[in-house]
Design a binder for these strands. Structure first.
Lengths: 250, 250
DNA sequence: AGGACTCTTCGGCACGCGCCGAAGGGACGC
DNA sequence: GCGTCCCTTCGGCGCGTGCCGAAGAGTCCT
């Protein structure tokens, strides 16, 4: 038999951390913050459908728990995910969480969620069908290599340079990272390369935000650029084959 | 303002998944199961210090939630983590969870936890100071490459072959994966390579389990093998430098 | 057959915690 | 100055849920 540490022993307090995300309101906050921006307390409260006072309590928990970073400006309390690691953790969790039954969504709600599934930001990189298609195209063209762990190839860095993207190597965050897409159930590209690519797509006018949501629309310039640089056509974004249905976590 | 999905909209039910781990008893179960073995219900109950009936309820939740797989044999209910992805998820969570204050641990308890910190298994690979030291040594010798995501080099695969380890490529699980060690706070090697290496260490008698815990002891053969194959000496296991204090998540 | 053991179901208890509304403090703008 | 807006604290309500012990079903051993 085992040493009976009686559950209250030494190790990491997993329950405390998980408990932060175990409430539907707090989870809703975190998922909303996955867009990478800073939200005010009332925005989050309204988004989750709770009173402002309730939101305050939840935000206190999340901030002291280290999941969120806050910044006070005048009468506003801005809050965002603590760092990209935290974002990755939440993505990771979300991707393996069960789907919530959509409550007979209204017509505009359906159209919104379809836009979201087509192309969206995921913290600081691209996700949805677009994100997955880009990742697949980059793999097909030998810019990414999945053989022995996900890496960017020499061709890949050259390709980035062609686009005018230069990477400043950080030793804190990996250059490329696989992130399981929760609508596509396939991996898309994250890490500093994924972030830089997303930033470039905004700067070069390939994509624009739809309203103030996480969803993005592909512009005409974007269509041309994707075809030119990656050979991506409209229908190639819905192919089902992917070389490596890679590990969800990493 | 945002589209008010009122928290109960469409996306993944993050709270439900997190809720499974948000209870200290269930968390204790999962952490215990990180040793990669199958435990019986009463073993887990005793480990966590709860009644058998309570354990039954928790196990039902974890199994139907998909985190645990069960197998019934006679009057026993064996239960283990669902797969290596689940193990990776829990590791990941545990590594960023706050530490629980050790309640004035007894003398044997302290010695146990020191053994655990020195060398232990983490699901199916090696962790603790030993796991981290092996990972560092492999990096120093050019067997692993962290430059553009963690990969195993050509030299690395050759080195494995020398040890008599051949990898059967699975497309489900990445060959190498970084796993943040929760005692060392540094990455150690996971993935199929990490698992194969750990298995080899047991088979070749480099290490043996200490009792029935997750802790392992390094044998004399093990000491020699580590020096021969990796240049690892006793004190080189406590150096503080590591090339890439890599991303916690992946 | 009988006894020991593992696991499960059930009823009941009690604590925790998420929720709100009302009231108050601080920042901004007119 | 005053009103408005954003956030916070506080008290109180009610549901959810983790816990146990007792009893029962199924398995194994002698």
């Amino acid at each position: 038999m085992m040493n009976s540490t009686h559950a209250h022993g030494h190790g990491p307090d997993l329950a405390a951390l998980a408990g932060l995300l175990a409430d539907s309101t707090r989870a809703s906050f975190c998922l909303a913050l996955l867009d990478g921006r800073a939200w005010t307390a009332t925005e989050l409260a309204r988004h989750a459908g709770v009173a402002a006072s309730t939101a305050t309590g939840h935000l206190n928990l999340l901030v002291t728990g280290g999941l969120l970073a806050q910044e006070r400006q005048g009468r506003h309390r801005y809050v965002r995910l603590a760092d990209s690691d935290t974002a990755a953790l939440i993505e990771n969790l979300a991707s393996r969480a069960p789907r919530r039954a959509a409550p007979t969504g209204s017509l505009p709600a359906v159209s919104r969620s379809r836009a979201l599934a087509r192309a969206r930001t995921c913290y600081d990189h691209l996700a949805g069908a677009l994100g997955v298609a880009i990742t697949r195209a980059m793999t097909d063209r030998g810019l990414l290599d999945w053989e022995r762990g996900l890496t960017i190839t020499g061709d890949g860095t050259a390709w980035l340079a062609e686009l005018g993207i230069t990477l400043t190597p950080t030793n804190r965050r990996p250059p490329v990272r696989s992130c399981l897409d929760w609508t596509e159930r396939r991996p898309h590209l994250a890490g500093t390369v994924g972030a830089a690519l997303c930033l470039h797509a905004f700067d070069a006018g390939w994509i624009t935000r739809i309203g103030t949501t996480r969803a993005v629309a592909i512009t005409d310039t974007g269509q041309r650029a994707l075809r030119e640089h990656l050979g991506l056509t409209e229908d190639s974004k819905h192919m089902d084959s992917f070389p490596q249905p890679q590990c969800t976590s990493s």
